[in-house]
């Protein structure tokens, strides 16, 4: 699944570790989601949406 995590992080000047800390997951998880290697569960997708204060569909796009 495509996503805008890298752009959204850059807009906030967050590193992958900063985002990982906000989500309470590992940096490896953020990296895997950001590079499209791993699609997060619905609860984690909602958590991402909360952290960025956006809707899920504003972060993730269909392939």
């Amino acid at each position: 699944m495509k996503n805008r995590l890298k752009v959204l992080r850059a807009e906030r000047s967050w590193s992958q570790q900063d985002l990982a800390d906000r989500l309470a997951v590992s940096r490896q998880s953020v990296n895997a989601i950001e590079t499209g290697k791993y699609d997060p569960s619905l609860p984690l997708a909602f958590k991402l949406a909360d952290v960025f204060e956006l809707a899920i569909e504003d972060i993730f796009e269909r392939d």
Binding site: A24, S26, Q28, S29, A32, Y38, P40
Partner: peptide, 8 residues
């Protein structure tokens, strides 16, 4: 393990 990616 609480981190779903690591668990996977």
């Amino acid at each position: 393990e609480q981190d779903e990616f690591l668990r996977m």
